[in-house]
Each structure stands twice: as C-alpha cells, then as structure tokens.
Design a protein around this nucleic acid. Structure first.
Length: 112
DNA sequence: TGTAAACAGCGTCACAAGTT
DNA sequence: AACTTGTGACGCTGTTTACA
C-alpha cells in the first residue's frame, strides 16, 4: 500500500482538516473559531458539541487501543503457530530423508 | 560501567473493507 | 452515507545485549 502519511497526525491538528475523532485539544483548549462538523439540528451549544466530540474521540481511541492489542495478540499467536508448524515439518522432512537413504541402501545393488 | 544498537511493546493515525 | 472494525505504518519508550 502506498501511504503518504503526514509526518505526524498531530501536526495537522491546527489545520482544521481533521475528522472529528481526531480533535486533539480538550474542550477548553479549542482554538477560537474552530467549529465542529455540521451541527446536527441545533440541539446543543457549541460547548456541548465540543464535549461530545471529545467524548467520541476518547471512546474511539480507547476502542482502537484495545483493538490494536488484540490484533497484535492474534498476530503473535499466528506467528507462533507457523513456527511450530515449521518445526514439525522439519522433523518430518528429516525423517523422510532418512527413510529415503535407508531405502536406497536396501535397493542399491551391492558391489562385493 | 557507560553506551550504542537491536528489540519489543504500546498508542495513535490513516485507510480499506464491512456493516447499518 | 455514516459508522465501525481490523490492521499496517510510524514514532516513542523501556529493556536487553554486545562491546569498548
């Protein structure tokens, strides 16, 4: 995959082009004039919207943290599994080679 | 014993694919 | 179309190892 990732996600925090879940600053620190994504109907004040966005972001980060842990756990397990399969196949291969050598010995015509 | 290099684990971001 | 999930990539930090 070709990912042209910015040096760091954090760097773009001030550019205003981030999805809501990436808003970095807590509510109180939001720069003046920053408006959350299209307000859904005017049910909430800007303050409430900011709090909601922060809450969503934190939830998302928490879930993703757990997802990443689980993903790594599964990957490790998978690699372990592959490694033990390799070990089994190596033993099997060794045995087959030995068996082949034995059979060759038996079948080959003897000189003297 | 200090230290640089290698390694492992973690949190986060970006993105594709799947779901609602 | 918006939301969710899984995962590769990146950067950071702490630990281990080899070496002067």
């Amino acid at each position: 995959m070709n990912r042209t990732r910015e040096l760091s996600g954090q760097l773009s925090a001030a550019t205003g082009d981030m999805p809501t879940y990436q808003i970095r600053a807590p509510t109180a620190a939001l720069p003046q004039g920053v408006v959350m994504a299209a307000s859904p109907g005017s049910l909430h004040s800007p303050q409430q919207l900011a709090e909601e966005a922060t809450r969503k972001r934190e939830l998302r980060l928490m879930k993703n943290r757990e997802a990443a842990k689980e993903c790594r756990r599964r990957k490790k397990e998978y690699v372990k599994c592959l490694e033990s399969r390799v070990a089994v196949l190596e033993v099997q291969n060794k045995k087959l080679i030995e068996e082949l050598e034995t059979l060759k010995d038996i079948c080959s015509p003897k000189t003297d």
